[in-house]
Amino acid sequence: MENNKFVEFREKIQDNIGKVIVGKEEKIDKIIVAFICSGHVLLEDIPGLGKTKLSKALAKTLNCTFKRVQFTPDLLPSDLTGIYYYNQKLAEFELKKGPLMSNIVLADEINRATPRTQSALLECMEERQVTIEGNTLKLDNPFFVIATQNPIEQFGTFPLPEAQMDRFFMRLSMGYPEYEEERAILNKYMNDDPLEKLESVISMDEIRYVQQHYSNITVSEEIKTYILDIISETRKSYDIELGASPRASLNLMRGAQALAAINGRDYVIPEDIKSIAVSIIAHRLTTRSSIGSSRSDSQEKVLEDILNKIETPLEKL
């Protein structure tokens, strides 16, 4: 396996998106990890912090087809998947593809749609297929969903159930820019929008390579034990009502492999686990102080306490 291909993949994406997004390299790294692992990302943040801009920049960088869907209470499942309609000229039914027939889909304000429409995403995100009037169609590859929701405004929303949250590989928050970063944003966007001039820098062959070979990264038995200790503690902790599932442990291992690869290593170290554990596990937990709500701060705090409690394996030189 050629580790330099993973490093180049990361550097190309970081440099290109950096023309549009300022100062979010760590978040972009995590999105790259989720994309390599064929996972999906939930961006939970207030409006105006660049979630849509980041999604469009990623699609352009990867040379992928992109669709944005504004989720509203009247959005129907067929508005996502598509429908068969009768073409009178041809005297036959034709498929009108929905936005899910794209490589990258931005589900904007996903918690504003009804549970029926939210659940239409489940099959697509997990099985990579849609069923339209009894016909099952495979989705394009790659297929990557970026969903957003505002954690503050809850009026008129439908909180995502645990099954839906578990489908997301990661939950991230963009956060406010630093003072000088925001100055750089003002200067960058003063005369025009750099997104309009952004060009693709990644080929489909490069995408296939990283998605097919990241699993070759070595995970030692000590690292596996470390992962299991973290997951096991979420099921024992008094502060947690519902702990992490085996899917969480698998995703944590795969995410650590992808992170090690884009950092030029062919093996996982404990720091890989620590740096992505909160993003991958926290949203899957139901804490006693957040039952019936979506208080991500409580979930993250409990998991950070667990990470500080669990002994980190020592690297053997």
Rank of each mutant, 00 (worst) to 15 (best):
E2K: 14
N4C: 07
K5P: 14
F9K: 07
D15F: 08
I17A: 11
K19Y: 12
V22D: 04
G23V: 13
G23I: 11
E26H: 04
I31N: 07
V33E: 05
C37G: 12
C37M: 13
C37E: 14
C37T: 15
L42Q: 06
L43E: 01
L43A: 01
L43F: 03
I46W: 00
P47L: 04
L49Y: 01
K51C: 09
K56D: 04
K60N: 14
T61V: 14
N63M: 14
N63E: 15
C64M: 15
R68N: 10
R68S: 13
V69Q: 00
V69C: 00
F71I: 03
F71L: 03
T72P: 01
L75Q: 10
L75F: 03
P77V: 06
S78P: 07
G82Q: 04
G82P: 06
A91Y: 05
A91F: 02
A113T: 11
T114H: 06
P115W: 01
P115S: 07
L122N: 08
E123R: 06
E123W: 05
M125E: 02
E126Y: 02
E127S: 12
E127W: 13
R128S: 09
R128I: 08
V130K: 09
V130R: 10
G134C: 12
T136V: 09
K138H: 04
K138Y: 03
L139Y: 07
D140G: 08
P142I: 09
F143K: 03
F144P: 12
I146A: 08
I146H: 09
A147R: 04
A147W: 01
T148Q: 04
N150M: 01
E153Y: 00
Q154W: 03
F155S: 01
L160G: 06
F168Y: 10
M170L: 11
M174F: 05
G175I: 03
P177C: 00
E180M: 00
E181Q: 15
E181C: 05
E181N: 11
E182M: 05
R183N: 04
R183V: 11
R183M: 07
L186I: 07
Y189L: 03
M190P: 03
D193L: 10
P194T: 15
P194V: 14
L195G: 12
E196G: 00
K197C: 09
I202H: 12
S203I: 14
S215P: 08
N216A: 11
T218Y: 04
T218S: 05
S220N: 08
I223F: 00
K224D: 14
Y226C: 09
I227M: 10
T234H: 02
T234E: 10
K236D: 01
S237A: 13
S237R: 12
Y238F: 05
D239G: 03
E241N: 05
E241K: 05
A244F: 04
S245H: 02
L252H: 09
A256Q: 01
Q257P: 04
A261H: 13
N263T: 06
D266G: 14
P270F: 10
D272Q: 12
I273N: 09
K274F: 00
K274G: 02
I280R: 05
I281Y: 05
A282R: 01
T287D: 13
S289Y: 12
S289Q: 14
G292A: 13
G292R: 08
D297Y: 09
D297I: 13
V302T: 08
D305C: 00
D305H: 02
I306D: 10
L307H: 07
L307E: 02
N308A: 10
I310A: 03
T312C: 06
L314M: 07
E315D: 10
L317K: 11
